[in-house]
Structures are given as structure tokens and as C-alpha cells.
Amino acid sequence: MPRRNRRCRCSPGACPPPQSGFASKDEVTTLCDIPEGEDAVIVEIMAGRRLNARLSSMGIRPGKKVVKKTGFWRGPMTIEIDGTIYALRWGEAGKIIVKRK
């Protein structure tokens, strides 16, 4: 079974509720949990209506391949989607569910 290091321990409410995919063997986690330099595919975004709309208008949406570039421990991180770099906070990253290959 693939190793899953550090579960996302973000502020209360920021973490997605565990769903069926979370417990299965699939490497479904959040953006917080993938190491720097690795890529994954966005499965779902659970950030509430407002932020969901904003993220999808920025091109951060399910089905997209995302690469985690750099991260400041539990601070903000940079990700790349379609060649564009975005920065987001640890808390927001915890709401983006991804699937690793």
C-alpha cells in the first residue's frame, strides 16, 4: 500500500469531510498532502459556492492536472495548472481533493 504521509491537519472546517474515496486504496487526498514537485489530478473542490466559482473561473477545476511547485510548510503553496502558476493558502489547498497517479 502506498505510503500516505501527514494527513492534512488544517484549521477546523477547512478539511473536507472524509468521503468514501478517502478510506479506499485510491490515493485520493488533498493538495496539502502531495509532496513538492509531484503532480495529481483534481477530483473535486469543496470550498463552498463562492470560492468554488472563483477557482473554476481561474481554471482551477476538477479534471485538471495540477503540479505542486513549492510550499512553505503549513503556509501558502504554489501550484501549476496549464502552465500558469497560482498561489494558495494551506487552508484552501485542503479543500481541493486530488487523485495521485
Binding site: A47, R54, P76, T78, T84, I85, A87, L88, R89
Partner: peptide
């Protein structure tokens, strides 16, 4: 507010 920002090249 949430921090989501595009980083221009």
C-alpha cells in the same frame, strides 16, 4: 478572504 492568486511569469 481566501488567498488564491495567480502568479504572473
Amino acid at each position: 478572504a481566501p488567498f488564491v492568486m495567480e502568479m504572473p511569469p
